[in-house]
Amino acid sequence: MNWFVFAIASWIAFGLELGARDVLQIGPGGIAPSFVIPLAVFVALWAPATHALWACLALGVLADLTWHLPRTDGGIATILGPYAIGYTLLGALVINMRGMMIRRNPITMAFLCVLGSLVAQIAVVALFTVRRVYGDPIAWDAGDELLTRALASVYTGGVGLIVSLALFAGAPLFQFQQAGGRRPAIRRS
């Protein structure tokens, strides 16, 4: 996999995610699509398993670093981890499912974007709910968050359908190789 092209694609995805979010948002609840998740799904669909997981982890770390959560005691918190875990789970899910999918089909992308996004968001909500249990100063309502994020996941699927056309066109640039269904190597001793 060409990591330089992946970095450029990530930069564009995050630029769109942060820049266009307010315009694409539906309602005051923050239901907005993600441009990063279609990229993560695309890489997980085509790249070798280990590369795909690292790429998803990197995207998750960047997503964590661009998420600033107001603290109820003043200031802002930046929390590293929830999206890193969530996106890696998304990657693992797609890697496990890609053998059963018609990869070069935008509908596959849309479907996996919805599913992958749901998995990632559930992981994020779970981690934050644990934080609330031990009293971290953050405003968090797991029920509301799950609903908002589920709707955002569906929205992301729609965006994934469109973004997939651009990603498929640029696929040769990524130089994916060994795009088999290999799982991380496990050796028995």
């Binding site: 995050f14 770390v61 670093l65 603290r71 875990i85």
Partner: peptide, 30 residues
């Protein structure tokens, strides 16, 4: 990541310093 994701906010304030370069990098496009 799991450890950091679960660590109380008061122990992970340094993460904000990592966020700044990322935001600076993305801002020219966003």
């Amino acid at each position: 990541m799991l450890l950091l994701g679960l660590a109380p906010i008061r122990y992970t304030g340094w993460v904000a310093w990592l966020a700044e370069p990322v935001v600076r990098l993305i801002a020219p496009l966003s």
